[in-house]
C-alpha cells in the first residue's frame, strides 16, 4: 500500500498536507481546483519535489530518499512523454533499461507491449509521425514494460477529445488490471473519475482528502467537492 505519513509539501506560500493510505491496486482520480497542488503531490511521489517533512511510504519502505528513476513509480506527464528523436521502439525500450539496449526476450516483450496498446508494427516510426492519441498509447506501452507498482498520470490525455480520452482511460484501466498497479490520475473532469471507476481523492484547501468511492462521492458530494464541482453536475 501507498501511505502518506504526515506529508507536508511547501513552496513559498504554498502548502499541502496529506496523511492517508491508498490500498494496493486501487485506481484513484485526483481532483481539485487549479493551484491546489495535484501536480505537486504527484511530483513528490515521483521524486521531483522534496517534502518539507513527513514521508511517502510504499510497502513499509520510505521512498523519499530515492532518485526518481529508482522509485517504484512510472509517471506519464502532461506532455513531452516521448523523446522525439527516438523511434517508438526505442522510446518503449527505455522502460526496460534506460540504456535502451534490450535482449531478445525483452525485444519480444516490447513488441508485445506495443501490440497491447494498439501500435503493433509501428515500432520504427518516430513520435512526430503519430497522432496525439497514438503518442499517448506509446507512453502507455513504455509504462507497461516498466511494470512499476505505482502509476502516476498527470493529465496526460487533457489534449485529446472526449471519445479518445474515454478510450485511453479504458486502455489504462485494462493495463493496470494486468500489472496490478496502483494508479493515481489527475483530471479536471468528473466524467473521467466515473470512467476510471475506483476512488476519488480531492486536493483542496491545502489538504489531500482521503479517497472515497468515486460514483458515491460525486452523487452526494461533501462541501469541498461540491464547491469544486459547482452548480452543474454530471448525470
Amino acid at each position: 500500500m501507498l501511505r502518506f505519513d504526515r506529508l507536508d509539501l511547501r513552496q513559498g506560500a504554498f502548502r499541502l498536507t496529506a496523511d492517508l493510505t491508498i490500498a494496493k491496486g486501487d485506481r484513484v482520480t485526483v481532483m481539485g481546483p487549479s493551484g491546489a497542488g495535484k501536480s505537486t503531490l504527484l511530483a513528490a511521489i515521483g521524486g521531483f519535489f522534496a517534502p518539507a517533512s513527513g514521508a511517502i511510504v510504499w510497502d513499509g519502505h520510505a521512498i523519499d530518499g530515492l532518485p526518481p528513476g529508482q522509485r517504484p513509480v512510472s509517471t506519464i506527464f502532461q506532455d513531452n512523454n516521448l523523446f522525439p528523436h527516438l523511434t517508438l521502439f526505442q522510446n518503449t525500450a527505455m522502460g526496460v533499461r534506460p540504456s535502451g539496449r534490450a535482449s531478445a526476450a525483452e525485444t519480444a516483450q516490447i513488441h508485445e507491449a506495443l501490440e497491447a496498446v494498439g501500435l503493433s508494427g509501428m515500432g520504427a516510426r518516430k513520435p512526430a509521425t503519430l497522432s496525439g492519441g497514438q503518442q499517448s498509447r506509446a507512453a502507455l506501452a513504455r509504462m507497461l514494460v516498466q511494470a512499476r507498482p505505482i502509476v502516476l498520470l498527470d493529465e496526460p490525455f487533457s489534449a485529446l477529445g472526449p471519445a479518445l480520452r474515454a478510450e485511453m482511460i479504458g486502455l489504462v484501466t485494462a493495463l493496470c488490471d494486468r500489472t496490478e498497479a496502483t494508479l493515481l490520475m489527475v483530471s479536471h473532469d468528473p466524467g473521467d473519475a466515473l470512467l476510471l471507476g475506483g476512488d476519488l481523492m480531492l486536493v483542496a484547501e491545502s489538504v489531500v482528502h482521503p479517497p472515497e468511492e468515486a460514483a458515491g462521492a460525486l452523487a452526494a458530494p461533501g462541501p469541498a467537492l461540491a464547491a469544486y464541482l459547482g452548480p452543474t453536475r454530471p448525470g
Binding site: G46, G47, F48, P67, P68, G69, Q70, V73, S74, T75, F77, N80, N81, F83, M94, G95, P98
Partner: peptide
C-alpha cells in the same frame, strides 16, 4: 522539456 522524463526513467 525532457529532464523530468529522463530522471523518471533513470536515464544517466
Amino acid at each position: 522539456r525532457f529532464g523530468r522524463l529522463a530522471a523518471s526513467l533513470g536515464l544517466t
